[in-house]
Design a protein around this nucleic acid. Structure first.
Lengths: 353, 353
DNA sequence: GCCTCGATTGACACCGGTGTCCGCCAGGGT
DNA sequence: ACCCTGGCGGACACCGGTGTCAATCGAGGC
């Protein structure tokens, strides 16, 4: 036994699968230099086909996979992608993660999660430290951090790839995935107007979220198609939380000319609206129609099952990952997949005459 | 301009913060060898205090942080921790992630997420490839993958640190975090029995989950304290899903001697029970008491707000991370934090006489 | 004052890849 | 036959850390 670690070419261990192959093993066995193996890995064009095939055969035989750490060290960049989010909704976060993983599958990248607090005074330096420490290849930002220009400026400065998921184009196309919240709002407005509602209410998300404005704007567009307008008194400012939905609805329902239908900016708030209606002695949908946004699990768990607008979060995540790692390529899927769609359940109906 | 990359000691860029300090910079500036700097980073005991202080001063001055990739390359191990899960509940996943991040904060580790499918025939090789590719420092497994002995055997074989979060001790203490589901079940049983219920039902999770058995066992214990027994006919096998809760409850409620209270193995199924009750024309809690398990958001969103057993998932995650990275140290917190606790809301009441 | 010994510290190789630059080679022009 | 050229492949340094082992140092023992 040598006092040092295994000998430079301990082929027995390699054959037995007890040791992972390195680029040196592959080079030695294929009878080429490690640089040439590196060329195969990196798809360098200047390689004779027979050389490439010979090396690929050895790689396949030993199940060789390059070490991301060593590669990253030489590249001065890791193969990690960060998900930076401050969205408090677990279902959103998980769906986004699943979508990102869909888009990254087989790419050799891994997903590192990094929740943050947009309100923190150290937001930018914190994220920056995270990126520089891990030399992240890129990051995906979701609302509302995705709407923060300070963060975006820092990302450009440190030269980190990034994609911002947002309601509207907040950056160049190469850095944006647009969630078309406005379209979703339109579907909600159209749905209520088509049912015959003329006096409707809206509970918005926090005004610091672009989606709040987009969903409202789209909602008004959808109503306008049928000549219905949203009265400013029938708008309550919420916070995308259950409690804020409850309070907002309590306020709207206490009005003498209370709305016959309420569009809540997300399902959580819509659940709050259902509770408020129950407390006010109103039954849904007979006395009040309610529609939410997101179509998360909660929408079908409450009573009555909630009509809502489905946001294709997972699909959005997939697109974001593909854009980030540059495989956006030929997208053959139906673009409609990326658009919100209406899910009519039992919480909406025509108003009582 | 040299054709090569920046000169070995471009101090101007360093001072200006345009270049991150490396161990070489610190060594040169402190007037020691890089190995000595390495000793400071790794808290080597054989270092004269004044040497250490001198180097620490330089490190602080330049905000130096060692490169995890380079360190990992030399250590043959990354500073990444994997979360391997197949739990479909988003809230569980997110809470677990948050807990893990709590426990990892400041440790220099990062969290990489890896959902998997326990039913897949390539489960073990897939996880193995993930670990070996990234040379993960360690992984945290949650139910139900945490209960898979094939996966555990592989982890021991590859020499990856791991912690299994499970209902019962499935491994040595060093590799286990026990969630005390039995205690949670006991609280549910005791609660219903104390309210006066004598004919109770239970909807279990999948029998492949240990938690299903533990929650049931504890439930029976709690009932037994008050002389109540759980009749086998009043047990339905569910799948921890809303639909399965709906179906299980429909079955139980159709019985001539239907139970006056139902304990559902988790909140999702409890939500299903509420729907089934409504369809059967029973009101909760007057005609039927319902209690769930988890205390996820959904519990307080449904109507009536659900009595349930709170599982301290985030806290469990923190403990798992601390155990994994060996900082379990002096745990001054109240151990009761790790125990499930009863949350009585409005879905349980005394049975009608 | 000289020697021994444990505590410190440093020189150098190495982890597993990539960038740079140079040499070799065959083929085409003259 | 000679030179030039471009394609191909290799030698070597380097990315930023750590392991090994030897050198150095100061103090205590004689």
């Amino acid at each position: 036994m040598s006092p040092r670690t295994p000998k430079p070419s301990d082929d027995a261990a390699l054959e037995g699968g007890r040791r992972r192959a390195t680029i040196n093993d592959i080079a030695r066995i294929a009878g080429v230099s490690k640089k040439t193996v590196s060329r195969v890995i990196n798809r360098s064009p200047s390689l004779r086909p027979e050389t490439r095939e010979k090396i690929e055969a050895v790689i396949a035989r030993y199940g060789y996979a390059p070490d991301p750490q060593a590669r990253g060290l030489a590249f001065r960049r890791s193969f990690l992608i960060g998900l930076i989010y401050d969205n408090p909704n677990p279902q959103y976060v998980v769906n986004m993660q699943l979508g990102l993983l869909d888009g990254m599958r087989g790419s050799g990248f891994e997903l590192v999660v990094h929740p943050c607090d947009r309100g923190s005074t150290t937001l930018v330096p914190d994220i920056r430290a995270f990126i520089e420490r891990q030399k992240l290849f890129g990051v995906v930002l979701t609302p509302s951090v995705s709407e923060d220009e300070g963060v975006a400026a820092m990302l450009r400065e440190v030269g980190c790839e990034y994609v911002r998921v947002a309601s509207v184009a907040v950056d160049e196309a190469a850095h944006s995935i647009i969630t078309q919240d406005r379209h979703g709002g339109l579907l909600a407005g159209r749905h209520l107007a088509e049912l015959g509602h003329r006096r409707v209410g809206f509970i918005s998300g926090p005004l610091t979220f672009r989606s709040s404005h987009e969903r409202r704007g789209g909602f008004e567009d959808g109503l306008a198609e049928h000549g219905v307008t949203l009265s400013p008194e029938h708008v309550a400012e919420g916070a995308y939380t259950f409690e804020s939905g409850l309070e907002g609805a309590a306020k709207l329902l206490a009005m003498p000319d209370r709305p016959t239908a309420i569009f809540a900016g997300n399902d959580e708030m819509a659940a709050g609206v259902l509770h408020a209606a129950r407390k006010a002695g109103l039954s849904v949908p007979e006395d009040l129609s309610v529609i939410g946004f997101d179509d998360f699990q909660i929408a079908s768990r409450v009573w009555p099952p909630l009509s809502t607008v489905r946001a294709p979060t997972r699909e959005i995540g997939r697109l974001a990952a593909e854009k980030l790692i540059g495989q956006a390529g030929d997208d053959k899927r139906d673009p409609a997949d990326r658009l919100p769609s209406l899910v009519a359940r039992d919480s909406t109906a025509a108003p009582k005459p």
